[in-house]
Computed example of a mutant assay.
Amino acid sequence: MTSLSPYLSYNGNCAEAMKFYAKLFGAKLEALMTYGDLKDQMPCPPGGENMVMHAYLVHPGFTLMAGDTPPGMEFKGIEGAMMAITFDTTAEAERVFKALSEGGKVTMALEETFWAKTFGMVTDRFGTPWGINGGPKEMPKG
């Protein structure tokens, strides 16, 4: 079986982000390992004891992996990509969009598109860009 999962990088707030996403999406945070937890298996960067080396979130519709950028490496944020997620209903899309917008920045308000009854874009308070779809429509065949 082939599987594709996003792996996101954070700047010291990975644990907070992943716990938030687990609650928001009703997912299970199966792993949240810090560099300090793994110091017997690998070197722990100075100052990185509490930074997340690897997090793994599981939902029936997706998996999400993440970690904090290790100390000494430049954190550039998440650029050139977004997390696109589709919900069966506009109500669920609106709920998630509202939660992700709190402390974040809306870059496109929810509105109807040719592919969904509602779609909007937001960068959440953790710096993760999202595209939220609700009530998908049948796509034109090209």
Rank of each mutant, 00 (worst) to 15 (best):
S101L: 06
D124M: 09
T63H: 06
G80M: 05
L38T: 12
E111S: 15
T107H: 10
G12A: 13
H54G: 00
E79K: 15
N13T: 14
A84V: 11
K117C: 11
G12K: 08
Y21D: 05
K19S: 12
T34P: 07
K117F: 09
N133G: 04
F97S: 01
E74S: 05
T118L: 05
E30A: 12
F114Q: 09
D40Y: 10
E16F: 03
A27K: 01
W130E: 02
M42K: 05
G72H: 05
A84K: 11
Y7W: 14
K141Y: 02
M53V: 03
P46N: 02
I78Y: 01
D68T: 00
H59K: 02
S3C: 03
W130Y: 12
A15S: 04
G26A: 14
A99Y: 01
A99H: 05
T123L: 08
A109Y: 03
E74Q: 13
G80A: 10
M18W: 04
L24I: 11
Y10A: 07
F114T: 13
T34G: 06
F20L: 07
D40G: 11
M53R: 02
M83V: 15
D88Y: 00
D40C: 04
Y56R: 10
I78D: 08
Q41I: 13
A116V: 09
S9F: 06
G72Q: 04
N133D: 14
T34E: 08
M108V: 05
P140R: 04
E30H: 07
Y56E: 14
P60T: 06
M108R: 13
F119Y: 15
P60D: 14
C14S: 09
Q41D: 10
M65K: 02
A31P: 04
P129T: 13
G61I: 05
I78G: 01
E138A: 14
T118E: 01
G26I: 04
D124P: 07
A93N: 10
P71M: 02
L110M: 14
W115F: 15
A31Y: 13
F126C: 04
N50D: 15
K98G: 12
D37E: 12
L110Y: 01
T2G: 13
C44L: 04
G134S: 12
G36M: 11
L64A: 10
D68Q: 02
G131K: 01
D68Y: 00
